[in-house]
Amino acid sequence: MSKRLNRKFGISRRIGAALWGTSKDPYHKRNYPPGMHGASGYKKTTEFGTQLLAKQKLKKYYGDITEKQFRSIYKEANRRKGDTGENLIALLESRLDAFIYRSKFVTTMFAARQFVTHKHVKVNGKTVNIPSYRLKPEDVVEVRDKSKKLLVVLDAAQRSEREVPDYIKLDASNSKATYLKVPSLAEVPYPVTMEPNLIVEFYSR
């Protein structure tokens, strides 16, 4: 197992859930925190601890987003009209790397970031290599022709653990997908419960 994959699965054990819903996640066999004292189990948390966990769970789910980046996304969500928690989910799901993962072009959120930075993706016909690039409804994302036969793309297409959500129109035969609309929290297929309302409370302290 690679160091990267090991680190990813360590996140699941720290969070206390199989964060990405994969059957290979060691959390299913070792559902306690990593470390020498982990076997004693997860301790009861305070209100602050519960809010922090909710924030870490959502942030870690989207891969390599730093705390500075996540806080910036939250501030943007808070500036927008409407429910801040729903705005936060909308902004995260409109990221290009998240869309690549949702469209099943790659197998993990971590791989999605790398896939974008290596220039394997086009948005509306133009190559984009910025994982945080914000998509708009009706944007068309496709894997570049020379990248469609990559093992990572072929492998992801065959995986049955995830379904493409309804807010994405997938043309699997051409490795192309259209962002139909900005989703609500209820429409996003998280394998674990996300609580953006607690994140709003955390940053409002």
Rank of each mutant, 00 (worst) to 15 (best):
L96P: 00
G82A: 11
A39S: 13
I130L: 15
N31Q: 12
L52H: 04
A157L: 14
V182F: 03
V141G: 05
T22I: 00
D83L: 14
R159D: 15
M194C: 02
Q56S: 10
P183K: 03
V182K: 00
D145W: 10
V140N: 09
L180N: 08
G10R: 00
K44E: 14
S173I: 11
N129F: 15
Y74C: 01
E86K: 11
A17D: 08
K29I: 09
Y61M: 14
R159E: 15
G21V: 02
S23F: 03
R162F: 15
F105K: 04
K146D: 14
Y133T: 08
A112R: 01
S147P: 06
V121P: 00
M36N: 07
D97G: 09
K55L: 12
I168Y: 08
R30C: 07
G82N: 09
T50V: 13
D155C: 09
V152E: 07
K119N: 13
I73V: 13
R95N: 03
R205H: 09
R14P: 02
S40W: 06
P34G: 02
I15D: 04
V128C: 09
K57F: 05
E76Y: 04
P34M: 03
V164S: 06
L135F: 00
R102W: 10
G38R: 00
Q56I: 02
D25A: 01
K148Q: 15
E138N: 14
P165K: 00
N129R: 06
R30N: 10
T50D: 15
S184W: 08
